[in-house]
């Protein structure tokens, strides 16, 4: 799980081009949207593509997104549960 969280942090920084942010700056339990990392709806679309491209996981129900993308930890838990690759 630890390794997956670190990998996710790096992938998100790269995919979203989060300049000046290192994996150490991201708390795995902080919210990704709003006050945490401050991501927005376009970033949400980027994260959906990241999940499918890197982990082969497709989010079937868009309503689940809010829960899955709450934090790095919730993303990692979701990946671990559904990973196909």
């Amino acid at each position: 799980m630890e390794a997956l969280i670190e990998k996710l942090k790096e992938q998100i920084i790269k995919q979203l081009n989060l300049e000046d942010i290192t994996p150490a700056d991201i708390n795995e339990e902080d919210s990704l949207f709003g006050e945490g990392l401050g991501l927005d709806s376009i970033d949400a679309l980027e994260l959906i593509v990241l999940l499918e491209k890197e982990y082969g996981i497709r989010i079937e129900n868009p309503k689940d997104g809010q829960k899955i993308f709450f934090s790095i930890k919730t993303m990692a838990e979701f990946i671990q549960e559904h990973q196909k690759k």
Partner: peptide, 13 residues
């Protein structure tokens, strides 16, 4: 690369 799938929105926008 992705066979016309998995397109990210930012570069399109």
């Amino acid at each position: 690369e992705n066979g016309e799938t998995l397109l990210t929105p930012t570069s399109f926008i």
